[in-house]
Design a protein around this nucleic acid. Structure first.
Lengths: 179, 179
DNA sequence: ACATAATTTCAATTTAAAATGAAAGTATTC
DNA sequence: GAATACTTTCATTTTAAATTGAAATTATGT
């Protein structure tokens, strides 16, 4: 049977609004709308959901629902739950906010920071070729600064995102709540 | 005359590669390719450039060159220089790497963090309507955590980006260079 | 006031990313 | 070992964002 209908799925106006907002937020963060929407939906749901439920709640195609659920699992924002005695997979969102934001930060680091850090190697590869007389002193100077900052941020992030090290959470939240 | 040809424009292979890389980086950061490319180009140039030069160096249309130069000025990454006795405007990139990254961070905060912070007000507006019995306890709990973290990050960023307060730079760079 | 040289605007086009949906692939049960 | 129930893939279409280019606008010098 395709729908056991065990869990009662809630879909209030508040939840719909939230999903809408989360989708928009996602777009601003460079996340595919459907992916953000699915994540938002799962955040509002007490119980795991099945692909077909996600599809109908958000009016998504099967392809999109599937692909984006995969991506969410890949990111660690959603857990796939294999139902015993059925091929069906059900999905739940990570509930811990710190864990959740860490997942997002990790992906963004990979997409945005790491390529910037690679410029360092690139710069050095040119340094050997054009040793001494540089083509653009201005660029080199600014770039050095940028790369220093980038690796500093990388260091901080590395520590912040180290799994099982959550003292940072306390530090961050306690020390700086008032703003 | 349209081209006084005073400054010698340099356009080496290294610079071209850099612009290419900077453009790609820009895309990963959610910045329009042309905008990032222009910024990259200006970073490599000792002297201010005129719109037509930018256009021909990057093979851009006038419309795009203009719009993106405006955006760069708006962000504070590029300064417009009005030539005396001519309508022509010349553009130079900000040279200070800290300043540069601050500009970018400020824009990203506006685009990505501020909308997240607004969820707090949204959440409160629902709290009054549905006082007590909530539609989704799971959501509320996770969301509280997310918002706490968001405002913590907001606090840190606020201090980091406060103009004329650069002790952070030292702190960030010195304390964490090794990684 | 006129002509020129620049900037600015914006409807139309292009481009890249995301979504679709139908077909192909795989477990699971009978 | 079929048949069923679900998942996965991918060529095509859609959508949103960026770019174009030509026309409109505004500043500057004669």
């Amino acid at each position: 049977m395709s729908n056991t209908g065990v869990n009662q799925v809630v879909w209030s106006a508040k939840q719909q609004e939230f999903v809408q907002k989360w989708r928009e937020l996602g777009v601003a963060w460079g996340i595919p709308p459907a992916m953000a929407a699915i994540h938002g939906l799962l955040m509002t749901q007490e119980h795991p959901m099945v692909t077909d439920e996600v599809m109908s709640f958000l009016s998504l195609s099967r392809g999109s629902a599937h692909t984006q659920l995969q991506a969410l699992v890949e990111w660690g924002l959603v857990y796939p739950i294999k139902t015993l005695g059925s091929r069906q997979v059900r999905y739940v969102a990570e509930r811990d906010s710190w864990q959740m934001m860490s997942c997002i930060a990790r992906q963004r680091k990979k997409r945005e920071l790491d390529p910037l850090l690679e410029l360092d190697a690139w710069k050095r590869s040119w340094a050997s070729k054009t040793d001494g007389l540089e083509a653009s002193a201005v660029l080199d100077k600014t770039l050095d600064g940028v790369l220093a900052q980038a690796s500093a941020v990388d260091g901080v992030l590395g520590r912040l995102l180290a799994e099982d090290e959550r003292w940072w959470e306390q530090w961050l939240l306690r020390g700086l709540r008032r703003n």
